[in-house]
């Protein structure tokens, strides 16, 4: 079963796609293996955030996504 990972902004460029289905469950420690080193190091930036189903995680390292969840990887906003 799957978790949908959505890449926003320049993270979509790094990923080479806008979203990807990955195997559930998905935790912080899984990300480097699942997404590759480039994306994992971008995620290490304190200003890169993670949202699950539209709720931004206060501590992204607590990520624990289940089947059917949408995980969005959010680079720093550039402002409207």
């Amino acid at each position: 079963m799957a978790v949908t990972v959505v890449f926003i902004g320049k993270l979509a460029d790094l990923a080479g796609q806008g979203e990807r289905e990955v195997t559930a469950p998905l935790e912080w420690a899984d990300l480097a293996g699942v997404l590759g080193e480039d994306l994992a190091s971008a995620l290490d930036n304190d200003r890169t955030k993670i949202a699950v189903n539209g709720a931004v995680l206060a501590d992204k390292r607590s990520l624990r996504a289940q089947d059917g969840d949408e995980v969005a990887l959010l680079p720093p906003v550039s402002g409207g």
């Binding site: 926003i8 680079p75 906003v77 402002g79 409207g80």
Partner: peptide
């Protein structure tokens, strides 16, 4: 608020 805290990314 819109310029600094809102969820937009620009290129």
């Amino acid at each position: 608020h819109l310029k600094s805290r809102s969820w937009f990314w620009k290129r």
